[in-house]
Design a protein around this nucleic acid. Sequence first.
DNA 1: ATGAAAGCGCTAACAA
DNA 2: TTGTTAGCGCTTTCAT
Lengths: 333, 333
Amino acid sequence: MNVTIYDVAREANVSMATVSRVVNGNPNVKPATRKKVHEAIERLGYRPNAVARGLASKKTTTVGVIIPDISSIFFAELARGIEDIATMYNYNIILSNSDQNKDKELHLINAMLGKQVDGLVFMGGKITEDHIREFKTSSVPIALAATVDETGETPSVNINYEQAAYEATELLLSHHNERVAFVAGPEDTVINTEKLAGYKRAMKDHGHDDADKWIVQGDYSYDSGIEAFEQLMNMEDKPTAVFVSADEMALGVIHGAQDSGYSVPEDLEVFGFDNTRLATMVRPTLSTVVQPMYDIGAVAMRLLTKFMNKEEVEEQSVILPHRIIERNSTQQK
Amino acid sequence: MNVTIYDVAREANVSMATVSRVVNGNPNVKPATRKKVHEAIERLGYRPNAVARGLASKKTTTVGVIIPDISSIFFAELARGIEDIATMYNYNIILSNSDQNKDKELHLINAMLGKQVDGLVFMGGKITEDHIREFKTSSVPIALAATVDETGETPSVNINYEQAAYEATELLLSHHNERVAFVAGPEDTVINTEKLAGYKRAMKDHGHDDADKWIVQGDYSYDSGIEAFEQLMNMEDKPTAVFVSADEMALGVIHGAQDSGYSVPEDLEVFGFDNTRLATMVRPTLSTVVQPMYDIGAVAMRLLTKFMNKEEVEEQSVILPHRIIERNSTQQK
DNA sequence: ATGAAAGCGCTAACAA
DNA sequence: TTGTTAGCGCTTTCAT
């Protein structure tokens, strides 16, 4: 049997209400009483039962986090941002992997709501109507991190993927590359669609209406980067530069090239996306789009705390700044 | 107001006890009644309150996970193993980062016990007496993952680090390297101590009693690998091979070497530890010790479920097999 | 097979 | 400043 608030009350000769007050830092307690209670707590080794507290107060001080895959460098960094801010605001985190599987996602949302989380941070690929319905009927606030809801109805934190992709492509084009390819991520995710749009817009602005023929499909993985390189080299006109929509996949492209005797950036310029730690762990170091992953997680969690506290929120769709960083996988100009 | 078990009971014209039974799959319910209840649940959109359930049953079906840093490739992989098995056994996970800070660790243990987790998976660097005391007085079982308790009192899952380090060093020595260096990890963690011991034993077995002079200190990071390389090259007798106690740090060593015009493995053989995904994302690909991170997490969680179910456990200190994989950062023999 | 009722440990009015 | 007392929503005997 664990020691309860009632045991402490008896030990300190006060009511449980008073114990509750000192445990919760309520100022309406005479210092002497407070001291007595603290001593009793110490003596008994009392530790408040958060479950009972949660039932009585209807607050669990825990938030749910649904993440595609915690073992991915990208998402792990986001998760760290989320957890740090959660800790700062005294929340704990229930973390589950969804593998971007819609059924799992929906199931997890429900499981977490069942656990009475005070809020939810959701990361995923595609927000469907079913998702929106769940979000809307949820009794607790929800924030999306690095995940876009096209309807704009769900609070979210992202960067401007379209613009970022535009700028990356533009930079490659400005290096007088006539043939700039794009290695896409999983189709049917809106972030990929946006990147694609940015790439196409840049191509078009530079007079290339044939962007479609320079697009190859990947899945963000290293291996798919290697495969993408093969495809690139099988094209009639080989590209001289390639914009890859994720760093890890970009490493695959670089190594695919090097393994085939090409050199980067001389024979092929390679540009990544995300600026994960990987970007500086490769030779040549990777030029890439800086997406502030940790911050996206942190800001999403911060946003969520505001909703949980019913604070006013000026803008519920936060767009964080991105930037381009040129390293050695592209030509120095 | 949310719909409760009581509402369902009224809607279905049964008692809450019966609703509870069907929700919990108790077989002692007439099929017709079960059906009625399910319909009522459906109609009302009832979702059981896990907090109330936890209070009444004294089980929360959630386990705490204390991890040094979820954004580390190594730990993220472990976490995935833990979470997958947790899901399989219907547990959720409360995840917190400790940064290997003892105070944080102790605080987290208490916070999680306060949340009434049914068990705890702990990952950390150094298990002190204070840790052991907390573990022992804990009302719920605890399992260590990739973390060794020298007293052997806490259930744990690891590999044999000493032996693995021995084999790695041995392999380098067998390549007729006269000078094999070692890049250590954070001092004062027992896993590092074990690796060090394995390295020294191998050196000694090959007639090198001067192992100490070939040891340089790192912190497992990429940058510390680069620095380690500098130190290696400042030695009087430069080593011709180096065993690095973590893959990421090994990449640092490789790139440090390459950036200085050395080639790997011709001028310097490099051997890593862990076999994180990074090992195949470098050129040359990294020879390394395979530590089954995902499995360690998975097995630790599985072990924990056994304790939580009060099952018999034959061996509470599990040692998983490791192996050596030779890739291109060492000489082919 | 089903129901009644007593908690689980705490918070939050409301009184005093 | 402190105490009394309902619940919070569910599980779990114990009856029936």
